[in-house]
Nucleic acid binder design. Structure first.
Lengths: 182, 182
DNA sequence: TCAACATGAGACATAGATGTCTCATTTTTT
DNA sequence: AAAAAATGAGACATCTATGTCTCATGTTGA
């Protein structure tokens, strides 16, 4: 469990870095309403803070997916529900994508595991007929990830509601953008 | 037309920043085999260099698309061909996506125009039946962009050849990943 | 060949972010 | 209330990227 000031710092980190990935630690501390020294007391440096943000973001993702899919009737439906639930969380993830966090083993492991879980879900969905067996799993995983980003983008730009974006992303993935949704 | 050392710097910029978006100007100069002072003689600072890289990258994109589509039998086919041609160029674009270049009017204008052209092509393809009319153009444009990125990623990771990736991306866009390619 | 120009190398100054430390004050716990 | 812990504010040192300038050397073109 996070202490109060740690929670404030983490939340400020999401806010500030989402708006500007090159923001200063001083910016984060200010947004958190906390002294700069206090930030350093809890997180040794920028990299530590980023790693902590990544861990929190991934945990949130895990929890959201777990909650959304625990009663899903199929693996395919579970993937659809996951997609739906992830979109609003995307702005807490995207700014981390360009951080060089590969050096932090903890983060790398958690990230790898998330990808593996997605890949497993995709393989299971394939067996249900949710995706064609001849489409590489690596592609489907990648497509899910990038279409989630696309959905988040159109929502951010005001071109669609989260619900509409989720429908569009899933339709694109499953049946494409021609010939009508199935 | 670029002078010889300017061309070397630009090319080094693509190489270095693709590998590490936070690389220093000294890194770029070294890769270019050029003195740091010379780099500053041609490009006032990091932002100028980035802007120049962006302009070159967009011009390359324009040229490649123009060449690939000039004999296309339809707007839909032109979009498919564009997608195919863009994938290998993606590593010259992607590192620019996270640069705050909005402040450079020249770049912003060129980028906006590219998006507009894509949107127009999509609308035309819609009228041909290449995409369903009820799918928002903004979504299709965004999907094209992100699936291009996905394709580039799987190629980079060795999970597909550029040709395979292009096929997968186009299939995803048009007919989805279930029910077989049409 | 000679003149104009471009370059490389290095010195120099600067600005900004980072990390450390101290000390008085506040907050929490006991 | 007393002790322990956490915090805020600010000073301080440092490090790195950046940008400027100079001068000797090399290159190009007339």
């Amino acid at each position: 469990m996070l202490k109060k000031s740690e929670a404030k710092i983490i939340e400020a980190g999401f806010t500030v870095f989402s708006a500007n990935p090159t923001a200063t630690l001083a910016d984060v501390a200010k947004e958190a309403g906390v002294g700069r020294a206090t930030l350093h007391r809890h997180y040794a440096g920028r990299e530590d803070l980023m790693a902590a943000l990544a861990m929190v973001a991934m945990q949130e993702l895990d929890d959201a997916i777990e909650a959304a899919t625990k009663d899903a009737p199929s693996y395919t439906e579970a993937l659809r529900l996951s997609l739906e639930v992830i979109i609003p969380l995307a702005d807490r993830q995207m700014f981390l994508a360009n951080e060089p966090l590969d050096h932090v083993p903890e983060v790398l492991e958690a990230y790898t595991q998330q990808l593996d879980e997605t890949a497993e879900a995709v393989e299971a969905a394939k067996e249900e007929g949710g995706f064609d067996a001849d489409v590489p799993t690596a592609w489907i995983v990648q497509a899910i990830e990038t279409l989630t980003y696309a959905a988040w983008t159109v929502v951010r730009d005001g071109d669609a509601t989260p619900e509409e974006a989720a429908v569009l992303a899933w339709r694109t993935l499953q049946s494409g953008l021609t010939g009508g949704a199935k």
